[in-house]
Design a protein around this nucleic acid. Structure first.
Lengths: 197, 197
DNA sequence: CAGTATACTCAACACGTTGTTCAGTAAAGG
DNA sequence: CCTTTACTGAACAACGTGTTGAGTATACTG
């Protein structure tokens, strides 16, 4: 177990970068601490000064991405987003979210991929739920059946994530950030209209 | 590597069952061949007569579920399903699909879960794509933009799987098989109407 | 400038898991 | 009755793990 508290920031980053490289090569399941240290060009002993095991590195890496994602998503105001969409404009705070994902496309793709971590999808969906959906349901006049709302939530967050994953898997991101943002806003607006589902 | 070809069916089943038990206890990542053999009450050497490693067991288990799922989904005729839905009836072949998932709820839940395999979600989506969507797009008069269709496919398959996962995670499946089937048919009918997305 | 703290290296350790091998056995079937 | 089939049990080297203790290079501090 890691006892030290104050350690070099760069080394941790090198280990996280090494994890991504290794996942891409052999899949998370087959990643070893030995190869992680080798790839990060540090001593294996040094690894244990920073992390207890490869799972802890994965946790750290995921949290890093999720915290940033959340901070950008918090700035999105769904109601405003719809307004700008209906006037044919692009809503900037949402563009920023998609832009962030594109900038970290490699990391997102690897962690979300078949070789990655099954927990990450769920965590991303939770980030979506906690902001976009909260705003949506609050802005609705009628109160929905709680059970139905649960499934509606699963429906929309899964759909959004599914589209993002498809986007990330396209080698050179066949759609631009702006096109992606438009698709997502259409999806969310679409769902918000579905009183008949 | 497993060299033998003819082996006892029950032993393989015992190993697969042990895998599910072990995943539930410690997560797939921490499953060992040793504990697999222990749980299945077989000799560790016997394990290697059937599988090369735990990944091969997982593959086998997944294929077993996917093949059965596919065979049931093939019997679903989306067009007929909509017709019966519009007359307020339940479309039986679709009920059978949901019924199958419920019967194997534990296996699906564990493999889809946070402790499970990230590849399985994708494989399930593929099964959905290859049947329901093929039928849907074929029955449509207008041909869609291929890129848009790709994202539409990601959208609907992710949404369906997301709802199923939500259903499986609910301890005692808060919705009946019939209610689940209705929700899914509504989703699919809903998507098929979305010319404005 | 000497002294100390920090971050890391290096080698070694016991331990557990892996994958393979080979001799042995229990049961079923021709 | 004897062979085949499916499995057991024990042993093996090889490898990864997590920890330890001694050592080093660099930066900071009084």
């Amino acid at each position: 177990m890691s006892v030290h508290e104050k350690m070099n920031y760069e080394t941790k980053q090198a280990i996280k970068k090494a994890l991504l490289t290794q996942i891409e090569e052999v899949g998370f399941q087959r990643v070893t601490v030995k190869n992680l240290a080798l790839t990060a060009k540090i001593n294996r002993g040094t690894f244990y000064l920073h992390y207890a095991d490869k799972f802890e590195v994965m946790e750290d890496l995921q949290q890093e991405l999720l915290n940033a994602l959340q901070s950008y998503i918090e700035k999105v105001q769904p109601v405003e987003a719809f307004h700008t969409l209906q006037t044919g404009q692009l809503y900037h705070p949402f563009i920023v979210v998609i832009q962030f994902i594109k900038e970290h496309a490699k990391a997102f793709r690897i962690i979300l991929s078949e070789q990655g971590s099954p927990t990450f999808s769920k965590k991303m969906k939770d980030v979506f739920s906690n902001h976009i959906l909260k705003n949506l349901t609050l802005s609705q006049t009628e109160v929905l059946d709680p059970i139905f709302e649960k499934y509606l939530q699963a429906f929309i967050t899964s759909a959004i994530l599914g589209v993002i994953q498809e986007w990330l898997e396209g080698e050179d991101a066949d759609l631009s950030v702006e096109e992606m943002a438009t698709i997502h806003l259409r999806i969310v607006r679409f769902i918000s209209n579905l009183s008949d589902l």
